[in-house]
Design a protein around this nucleic acid. Structure first.
Length: 316
DNA sequence: CGCTTTTGACCCATT
DNA sequence: AAATGGGTCAAAAGC
């Protein structure tokens, strides 16, 4: 869980979790918990009898406060765990095999495929879907780098075996692999401008629907699209040809209108037309729908929402 | 002849 | 420590 590396919350979550701590008499030894390390005064108070009653009371109050906070966090974890189990059982009903011990990579992928359900539902209204996700990727223990990961689902002819997604850029294939959870092979592409451009993409047919190609883009191009590109924009809204994308990052949801693409034409974009389309009810409805889809698909958001609701509930 | 694709081997992270 | 699986490399083949 990358969040654990980037957020101080992980320290709090370790405080006195049941089942984690062994009820060992060795707890009296100088071995310290994370909470002790975060708050050295606690350790001192435990090892040295303090004649100052006020300080002892303050420490006791602090302990009570931390216990209370710990109880809330434990409840939150229990709630999240219950949600997770409910979600897994739902996936099981949908034909997924029961959850097996998987690697972190695989669990990340299964999170991705949870979004592909949305992709399938949106395919019914004949759209090409794009999702932007900024992933915090730990470079070292102390720093986090943001890598933009974007998933694009493209409806294709089921008889078409080529793993080619036309997105206007030039790609060089450098590998192909059959993965365990999908009978169709996964193709690996690098931007043709590599190594100066670090973007990579993986293309694979959807496991559920072979008429959908799932392309996962990692990183962002540091160069413009090659001129003369006549392919479709990577994301077209259901209501019209306005090329847009929605991304969510720390600064909030961002809607990007790519005015370098004008629906495949080679002339200058017609700004008036674009503005009219953006103001149209169809576009705005599609926008709201896409934002809702992105938000509900974002686990961090739903978990934060659940935690906020939980805090508002009276103790039970 | 040079560029792209294919594909088996290899590396590495995870369990 | 071994098994497993995803990602990448690089030689060979194709165009």
């Amino acid at each position: 869980m990358d969040m654990a590396r980037c957020s101080p919350v992980c320290l709090d979550l370790m405080v006195g979790l049941p089942m984690v701590r062994e009820p060992s008499p060795a707890r009296c030894t100088p071995m310290r918990t994370e909470a002790d390390i975060a708050n050295p005064a606690c350790g001192r108070a435990a090892s040295l009898p303090n004649p100052n009653d006020d300080e002892a009371k303050a420490l006791e109050a602090k302990l009570t406060q931390m216990s209370e906070e710990n109880r809330r966090l434990t409840e939150m974890i229990a709630y999240m765990y219950t949600n997770q189990m409910a979600r897994h059982s739902l996936e099981g009903e949908a034909g997924e095999p029961p959850a097996s011990p998987t690697s972190k990579k695989r669990s990340r992928e299964s999170m991705d495929t949870s979004n592909s359900g949305d992709a399938n539902s949106t395919k019914k209204i004949r759209t090409v879907e794009a999702e932007h996700v900024d992933v915090e990727s730990p470079v070292s223990d102390s720093t986090c780098r943001r890598i933009k990961i974007r998933r694009v689902c493209t409806p294709i002819d089921p008889s078409d075996t080529s793993l080619v997604v036309k997105d206007g850029y030039q790609w060089r294939k450098y590998g192909q692999k059959v993965t365990r959870d999908n009978p169709s092979p996964r193709a690996y592409f690098r931007c043709a401008f590599a190594p100066s451009c670090p973007v990579k993409k993986k293309v694979q047919r959807s496991a559920e629907d072979s008429s959908v190609l799932e392309a996962t883009y990692e990183g962002e191009h540091n160069h413009p699209q090659p001129t003369g590109a006549t392919e479709l924009p990577s994301c077209a809204t259901p209501g019209g040809p306005v090329p847009c994308s929605i991304s969510i990052n720390s600064s909030g949801p961002t809607i990007t209108l790519d005015l370098t693409k004008n629906g495949g034409g080679a002339t200058q974009p017609d700004l008036t037309k674009v503005c009219r389309e953006v103001a149209s009810p169809e576009f705005q409805a599609a926008l709201v729908e896409q934002m809702a889809r992105v938000l509900t698909g974002d686990r961090n958001f739903t978990e934060a929402l659940a935690a906020a609701i939980l805090r508002k509930l009276p103790d039970y």
